[in-house]
Simulated scan of single mutants.
Amino acid sequence: MVSAETGMFMYNDSKTLAWFPSKAAPEDQRYLHFGVLCGLALYNQCIIHLPFPLALFKKLLGVKPSLGDMMEFSPFVGKGLKNILEDYTDDEIGILDLDFSINWDGTNVDLDPQNPEKPLTGQNRYSKI
């Protein structure tokens, strides 16, 4: 079920870590069955290979993922976000004309759902979303 052929998961560039695709339907019963199988494996003390990044387990525990977690799954996207935080001056960020969204799995994802069109500035680049 975790293989790329099923289409249930998207994989990072190195094909070592899996994540849920942005186009996954919440009512898809395959995810329910996958969860039941994982639960049965844990209950029966079977070791199974689940190629998920640490961010998934943080989300299950209610811990907010970090930029480091993004860099683990997608170094290209993570490095771009880190560059915005650390390398650009306030003036340079203003020139870039960016907003709080990224392209993830072919879909634009708002990083601030309350204010999706919020422009990125030097002052709000460190804001907690």
Rank of each mutant, 00 (worst) to 15 (best):
V2K: 15
S3F: 15
S3R: 15
A4C: 15
A4V: 15
M8S: 10
F9T: 11
Y11L: 12
Y11I: 09
Y11K: 10
N12C: 09
S14M: 06
S14Q: 08
S14P: 02
L17C: 10
L17A: 07
A18K: 09
W19K: 13
S22N: 14
A25T: 10
P26M: 13
E27L: 14
L32A: 12
G35P: 01
V36D: 03
V36F: 08
V36E: 05
G39L: 06
G39A: 05
Y43S: 06
Y43P: 02
N44I: 08
Q45V: 12
Q45R: 13
Q45I: 12
C46A: 14
I47V: 07
P51R: 07
P53Y: 06
P53H: 06
A55T: 04
A55G: 05
L56T: 04
F57L: 00
K58F: 01
K59D: 00
K64I: 01
L67V: 04
M70N: 08
M71C: 10
M71N: 06
E72P: 02
F73T: 03
F76A: 06
F76W: 04
V77C: 12
V77A: 12
G78Q: 11
G78P: 02
K82Y: 05
K82L: 10
K82G: 04
N83T: 13
L85S: 06
D87C: 15
Y88N: 09
D90S: 11
D91M: 10
D91S: 11
E92V: 14
I93E: 04
I95M: 14
D97P: 05
D97S: 13
L98H: 11
D99I: 01
I102M: 14
N103R: 13
G106T: 07
G106Y: 03
G106A: 08
V109P: 08
D110K: 08
P113Y: 06
Q114I: 08
N115R: 01
P116H: 08
P116I: 05
P116F: 08
L120C: 02
L120E: 01
T121F: 00
T121Y: 01
Q123S: 10
N124V: 02
R125T: 03
I129T: 06
